[in-house]
Design a protein around this nucleic acid. Sequence first.
DNA 1: TCTTGATGGCAAGACGGTTTTGCAACTAGC
DNA 2: GCTAGTTGCAAAACCGTCTTGCCATCAAGA
Lengths: 335, 335
Amino acid sequence: MAAAAGVSVTTVSHALNGKGRLPQETRDRVHAVAKDLGYRPNATARNLAGGKTGLLGLVISQPATIRSALSDFAYFTSLTAAASAAALDRGYALVLTPSDIGLGAAVGVAVDGAIVVDPVEGDPLIQELRDASMPLVTTGRVVGDDPGRAWVDNDHVAGTRSALDHLGRRNARRIALMTTPTVISYSVDVERAYRDWCADHAMEPLVSKTDQQLTESAGYAAASELLSLPDPPDAIFASYDRLAFGALLAANARDVAVPDELMVVMTATESSHGQSSGPSVTALDLHPKQIGQRAVELLIDIVEERVEGGEVLVPTTIIPRASTKRPATGRGKRA
Amino acid sequence: MAAAAGVSVTTVSHALNGKGRLPQETRDRVHAVAKDLGYRPNATARNLAGGKTGLLGLVISQPATIRSALSDFAYFTSLTAAASAAALDRGYALVLTPSDIGLGAAVGVAVDGAIVVDPVEGDPLIQELRDASMPLVTTGRVVGDDPGRAWVDNDHVAGTRSALDHLGRRNARRIALMTTPTVISYSVDVERAYRDWCADHAMEPLVSKTDQQLTESAGYAAASELLSLPDPPDAIFASYDRLAFGALLAANARDVAVPDELMVVMTATESSHGQSSGPSVTALDLHPKQIGQRAVELLIDIVEERVEGGEVLVPTTIIPRASTKRPATGRGKRA
DNA sequence: TCTTGATGGCAAGACGGTTTTGCAACTAGC
DNA sequence: GCTAGTTGCAAAACCGTCTTGCCATCAAGA
């Protein structure tokens, strides 16, 4: 920047980065002038000098079999957008990397670190990145991983329990779980928490797993089946919002009243609300924006060697709405 | 790269970039050694020297009112992923920019060029970028823009006509259009093409516009209304796939047989197929991947000053499926 | 044989910062 | 009053590539 502003480039660099030995007075003056001139250091030059690229990679890990079923686009969009914004805030750029190009040493972009979203057990990419000792943060844990790794995840066990508690307090007698096969830590956690909760409450588990794409249609089909059981559920916890919307349509088609005869809770993103035309659905918000943001922050901390790893748990929030609008009994914790 | 490989850095640079005056023999030798060493020039240094950042920004333009309704995540995901891959292929990194941070000179990242997806009429971002003379490509046209701008778009007029022709050849008597308010060039084009086609074929237009979020539920509601008209449509063209899926559910609920009593055609992405549980739906594929890819290519051509602008039309493809499975009459073009 | 022109390749500067080193000037202790 | 330590800042080296300028070398023409 115009050393014209009084001092040498060295001093400017020192002042702006809080490095060298400078009196506060000089720092302030440099900062003032910089602000005045709207000076912003050139990121490319800074990266060159620092031996970095300024890029972070984000890959969505999904095995080929369910990649096309990856219909929970809203979740990923939300997460990715927040991650990108968080990266920009801190002077990095987030680049979406197709999982098939890879970030490996051999091909693809040179990045300073990587985020892998919802890693699937045995995904070779994880191993490849670790072998290359690339700074790595996963969103959702790697199933079967040792502790000490860097990840950001919801507390799905607590979240699931809070959703079930919510239903239990409203006198649900038989709660069904609508979910998917367990390929990522999310589905593993939810199903285990559900079964544990059922055991704790002497309730018989009723799990409906769809391996179709996660659409309202799949939810419609699954819920129709559940509702035609001899002893149908009076509450449903859906691990994807669109399954819940489908369940609502199924209930409507069968004249099952929501919430009186059937309560529905779904996991959701910020954008899930109001997407169904029926009663608004009580949601367990996963806060994907926070997930994305925290993942980036953790990754940058690792890249800049402030920490080596870290396990970040993002809490979930239950948002009561019409689909579970029954008076809660006094027993149990308050929502 | 190790000038250790025989020559000077200058020669390496010249050889690898096909610049200076070098005999083919030297070039080949350098290339061979480079490949041998797995040498890849440092992008950061290259950018510094070239005075660029190596970054392209991609913004999704949506007015606040419908941003939350942006449920067509699959389309954007597809487009964005393809754009990102195309950029990486050419040595650039694509970064998603939140529309509120902006790419303006004042704030945000420094990028070499920008892509604005589905610009809304009067979006200030467009003007800001143009004022800063930032290389710009839009995906979908800016409504009311003069020619000569750089954009990539589907030929929605031709596409809509081909979808309607497809229905017409199968003896549709009354075709309804399910769509949204006209805020982007896409919705404008589709509705105009539909009305023109109706006029050409002496058919009374029947347009159902939903301003709800674009979910199956909205499609369900809109289709239910259409089907309860005194003179209900016997074919529906839906400008969003989820509207069509909802229509299918509505038809099913009313025992309207598809395709015998009602044919359905939707615009779609690669991932739309198989998302409904009913009959598979004939689709007008918009090829969002191609849109994203072509947009990046065009933008890079502009950034590197090979061209100044360009209008790229990506064709659409009609994919006949069960929802319009009727014998086509001999009249008209073949599908 | 000498000049001229084309050709092949190297050296140095530029890009815009960061970081290290070095040098005054000032302060303090004895 | 001299040495030692501290403080404030500038000069220089470096990051890895591209670009420009220039010196050889060699062949052809005079």
